[in-house]
């Protein structure tokens, strides 16, 4: 019945929505930033444990739609063991992939994040996918103020 939506709601997204990864608090986190999408009410708190400039552990808490939950869940998996610079680069690539600014995104470069590429066809939902990453961006820059998509 929802054939048209297969690009947006892939099975991986349903899976991460049902069973979000790293859905926990890191008690001794080095970085902790809140992200908020006031239009839809998505809220998350991102926790990072650093080891030098390397992300030793990442986790989150919060509630949101399937797209935003899957996005943050996938993100916490993929950024683990990345350096800050690598994570920043990933943020830029992800942003370009979801906002459609670059036509020739190398989907291999984003690995399993590619399942979120479908949101570029749904402008109203792009912020759902990027909230996690904007929050990460703030965390990497060591900003403590809550991130808002508006």
């Amino acid at each position: 019945m929802f054939e048209d939506l297969r690009d947006l709601y892939q099975e991986v997204i349903f899976d991460h929505n049902r069973n979000p990864r790293n859905f926990r608090i890191i008690e001794n986190a080095d970085r902790k930033v809140d992200g908020f999408n006031p239009l839809c009410g998505d809220r998350l708190t991102l926790y990072l444990k650093m080891d030098g400039d390397r992300i030793a552990d990442a986790s989150f808490q919060g509630s949101g739609c399937a797209i935003s939950t899957a996005s943050v869940s996938l993100m916490t998996e993929i950024i683990k063991d990345k350096t800050e610079a690598e994570a920043e680069a990933l943020f830029k690539t992800f942003h370009e992939m979801t906002t459609g600014k670059s036509e020739d995104i190398q989907l291999e470069a984003v690995g399993k994040l590619a399942v979120l590429a479908g949101v570029r066809e749904y402008p109203a939902r792009v912020k759902c996918a990027t909230l996690a990453w904007h929050t990460l961006d703030a965390a990497l820059k060591n900003q403590h103020e809550a991130v808002s998509t508006e």
Binding site: M1, F2, D4, L5, L8, Y9, C40, D42, S63, G64, C65, A66, I67, Y122, A124, R125, C128
Partner: peptide
């Protein structure tokens, strides 16, 4: 367990 924005996008496709 289904967020209103997912409901909105799903129904829009119909």
């Amino acid at each position: 367990k289904i967020h209103p924005h997912d409901i909105g996008t799903m129904l829009d496709s119909l």
